[in-house]
Computed example of a mutant assay.
Amino acid sequence: MGINVYANKTVIIDHSHQELVDTSIEGNPTEGAIDGLRIQYVFRRKTTKGHDRDGNPLVYALKQMNGYRMQPMYHQMLYKRADEILAVFVGDLDVDALVDVPSSKPLCRLFATRVAEVSGLPLVESNFLRKRTVGEVLDAIDASFPQFTKDRDERAFKAELGQLRRAKRDTDFQMKEVAKPMRRFFQPFTVSGEVPALAGQRIALIDDLVSSGTSIISVAECLREQGAIVERGVCLLSDLNAVRPSS
């Protein structure tokens, strides 16, 4: 099953091809690595020429974002296939628990619940994590300014920082407002409230889509600061460099 995206931003599942998103059992899962995390992806995004041709409209439709939509019957078809692919590999995660990456949309938590159901692993909900404020992000950067090997990267970072300093310090930091190449220099999440006992626990992080990887890396760092061992991740949709694991 691939996806078709129409001019009115309707997304449908199409059984006749695997374009834009490969949802086939034989083509999945795929995997990649980000900052020490081995991440396995249920569905592989693919690129083709043209507007909205990178598979992102599927996650937009699942999240009901940017005007994209998909009928419930296609949601059900997609999740049924996701469960079949998850069953192939989640038994080999070798972790003690799952933690979802915080999101303002319910998709990630819903997907994390499915991973927990298929794997039998407990889901530790990420209510103890929150987005940092603009002020907190700026203070962290001022305390430890990144080191750059290229002048152009430092100039680009300082330009992003200048934009951020014009925002209100008490508002939530929005990673989407930062240019993708610069996102790795920002830490969007922090621990807040009552933290579960994570010391020594092997954790797999659950996300819906990896773009720059900043969010999942930030959450991993937060959990490691609590003594957790975080080396694995599971995502619904892949980045664009995902590959089939070697047998």
Rank of each mutant, 00 (worst) to 15 (best):
residue 1 M to Q: 01
residue 1 M to S: 04
residue 2 G to S: 06
residue 2 G to H: 02
residue 3 I to T: 02
residue 5 V to G: 03
residue 7 A to C: 05
residue 8 N to L: 07
residue 8 N to T: 09
residue 8 N to M: 05
residue 8 N to G: 03
residue 9 K to P: 00
residue 10 T to E: 15
residue 10 T to R: 13
residue 11 V to F: 04
residue 12 I to V: 15
residue 14 D to F: 04
residue 14 D to N: 15
residue 14 D to H: 03
residue 15 H to T: 13
residue 15 H to L: 12
residue 15 H to N: 12
residue 16 S to Y: 10
residue 16 S to G: 05
residue 16 S to F: 09
residue 18 Q to C: 12
residue 19 E to L: 13
residue 19 E to I: 13
residue 20 L to M: 07
residue 21 V to K: 03
residue 24 S to F: 12
residue 25 I to A: 07
residue 26 E to V: 15
residue 27 G to V: 14
residue 29 P to T: 08
residue 29 P to V: 09
residue 30 T to F: 04
residue 31 E to P: 00
residue 31 E to D: 05
residue 32 G to S: 15
residue 32 G to A: 10
residue 33 A to I: 15
residue 33 A to F: 14
residue 34 I to P: 00
residue 34 I to Y: 10
residue 35 D to C: 11
residue 36 G to C: 11
residue 36 G to R: 07
residue 36 G to Y: 13
residue 36 G to A: 12
residue 37 L to P: 04
residue 38 R to Q: 11
residue 39 I to S: 04
residue 39 I to R: 02
residue 39 I to H: 05
residue 39 I to K: 03
residue 40 Q to W: 08
residue 40 Q to Y: 06
residue 41 Y to V: 03
residue 41 Y to T: 08
residue 41 Y to D: 07
residue 42 V to Q: 02
residue 42 V to E: 05
residue 43 F to H: 04
residue 43 F to Q: 06
residue 43 F to P: 00
residue 43 F to E: 06
residue 44 R to A: 15
residue 44 R to W: 08
residue 44 R to D: 07
residue 45 R to L: 12
residue 45 R to W: 11
